[in-house]
Write a protein that binds this DNA or RNA. Structure first.
Lengths: 134, 134
DNA sequence: CAGAATCCAATTGGATACTG
DNA sequence: CAGTATCCAATTGGATTCTG
């Protein structure tokens, strides 16, 4: 989804950034909510730590998503000059706000597991990224 | 995003529906949050009413999204046998729960309009789908 | 370890025209 | 009015291999 949408004002077409559409860009990316959530749970995580917590994400996708989240100022990256390299990701203040804001959504989602089609009700909570710590 | 993910249990691989991933499927669709929001604002809306409120959605996309939301039992459709035809969409109880759950997210989004890059701060609130009524 | 690079399949969604 | 039918361009994200 494009971040820019057109607004009409006094006959001229110009660009605006609509926050609601902006947030949809952010949270609609497949792994975003999960990342925000686990970083909320764990405080700091390294690249491979995230790979594990997320279970199934590819390095490319994770890398892309992390960059997008940094650009949005939702997570921060701390690099240590060591060998082997160490990099730690954590939520920014904005990211923590977002995490708070999605908690009701996560709870709503978690409570929907009474749907008939599900077969793995007892198991999914074992997935680290599905744990919600308040 | 696929609705099914694999879970391991006692050596066997079987399918499960993880609610957290399920909800991401739902809300990550481009117009979903906007639809849930305007239906929360307006109670009942007809197809073309939604088209107007949403400003920029194509009939195909709206139609697809509405079907998906019905399937998820988030909105309901009421058809009247009249000519010309009349159809009204509204939130189900589940949909209303979802709406409540996303309010913090919408507010968070609305408060982010202090970002530097924006040029249309005064205007976006005029977009009906961006109004949030509590 | 923390990614970058490449390639590719599937999904998404927009534009447009048409219909009961 | 409330969609459906087509067609198509762009985006997304997975698999895999490689590297500082």
């Amino acid at each position: 989804m494009s971040k820019e949408s057109k607004c009409q004002k006094d006959g001229r077409t110009h660009l605006c950034l609509c926050p609601l559409e902006g947030v949809i860009d952010v949270i609609s990316k497949k792994w975003t909510l999960l990342i925000i959530n686990v970083l909320g749970n764990c405080e700091k995580l390294r690249f491979n730590g995230l790979m594990e917590q997320l279970e199934g994400v590819s390095p490319k996708t994770l890398s892309d998503t992390l960059k997008a989240l940094q650009k949005e100022n939702l997570i921060m990256k701390e690099t240590f000059n060591e060998i082997p390299p160490r990099v730690e990701y954590s939520l920014t203040a904005d990211g923590k706000e977002l995490r708070k804001a999605i908690v009701p959504l996560l709870k709503w989602a978690a409570e929907r597991d009474c749907l008939p089609k599900q077969k793995c009700v007892q198991n999914y909570r074992n997935k680290p990224s599905h744990r919600i710590e308040l």
